[in-house]
Design a protein around this nucleic acid. Structure first.
Lengths: 167, 167
DNA sequence: GCGAAAGATTCGATCATCGAAATTATTTCG
DNA sequence: CGAAATAATTTCGATGATCGAATCTTTCGC
């Protein structure tokens, strides 16, 4: 699932518009990504939430920020108590460790273990290899176009989400 | 999955490779899509699974296929009993109807209601508008490149998933 | 220092999901 | 034709992720 609104748009089957084709492909891509994540998680005994949590902590670590349960809860849109449960699971499975912040002892810092790092590269390395393989055909100019397209599409999604939030 | 492994890859922050940039953007796009679906579902009182189920049924309907609880369960990677629950919810909320197949009365056919159709276009219409707006800048040649890119990326994901399934 | 606030956890309840058994309808075949 | 096997879905009991409210510990303002 892990997926998301998997498969359905307004585009009629008959004459597909130019935009319709792109929308359909984007949809397919997100569905396939979700399926991959789901299957990967299953293989490692990690549900969606645990995978997401790991990913958030990994990303924060990579850019030099430390995560606390609170910030993790915010990032995951999860209640503090559910986050505690998730952290219990991830600590029990040896992917994360909790250590108290010596400066402010109310806070907890989350550290990835080597096992988590292996999980992360097990997730991304095969994808990166396969992507690299298939993307070799694209020239720098074409890549620039693709970057513009992806950026525009991300912005569009964020914009529409913002509109939705206003209501 | 909705979301999916939200945020973390192997690419180091420092000198980002050309592929690394694309991977990061793809990841962002899936994350944002998932967030949008999540927020939309929340606004309509539909969880992930219900949204996914609706989407699958809508898509099948659109291409002239009828769904049964069984085929829906398969499409969602959900147990039959969980699917029954989801259908109970969707029927109670007036999005779907169950009717027995007159030919083989063991089977149940799932029909979308007008309300479900409205939900669907409420989901996709704003996105389509915003995408259309932002994509106006792309020439047909550029779109062809983008289509190739998206197709290649989908195939890559499917391939890696297939490899994972073999183990 | 003392009360208020911040950060995290515990507790009890709810609900989605699962696996196994049950129900209803159909097909096979003796 | 009738009985057993098969198919499709649902029911039931149990598990577990999540939530909201209350609790505990630490820090900050006065």
């Amino acid at each position: 699932m892990g997926d998301m609104a998997a498969d359905a748009n307004g585009s009629l089957p008959n004459p597909e518009t130019a935009d319709g084709l792109l929308i359909r492909l984007l949809r397919q891509l997100t569905v396939e990504s979700a399926r991959f994540a789901e299957m990967f998680g299953e293989a490692h005994g990690l549900h969606r939430t645990d995978l997401n949590a790991l990913a958030v902590v990994m990303d924060a670590t990579r850019r030099g920020r430390r995560m606390s349960p609170g910030s993790l809860a915010a990032a995951l849109h999860l209640s503090p108590s559910a986050t505690t449960s998730a952290l219990d699971r991830l600590e029990a499975s040896g992917h994360l460790r909790r250590t108290r912040d010596p400066a402010d002892r109310r806070k907890i810092e989350l550290d990835m273990t080597e096992k988590a790092r292996r999980v992360g590269s097990g997730f991304f390395a095969p994808l990166a290899v396969e992507f690299g393989d298939r993307w070799r055909e694209f020239t720098p100019e074409e890549r620039a176009t693709i970057v513009r397209f992806l950026t525009a599409s991300i912005e569009a999604t964020v914009t529409v989400r913002g509109d939705l939030a206003k209501e």
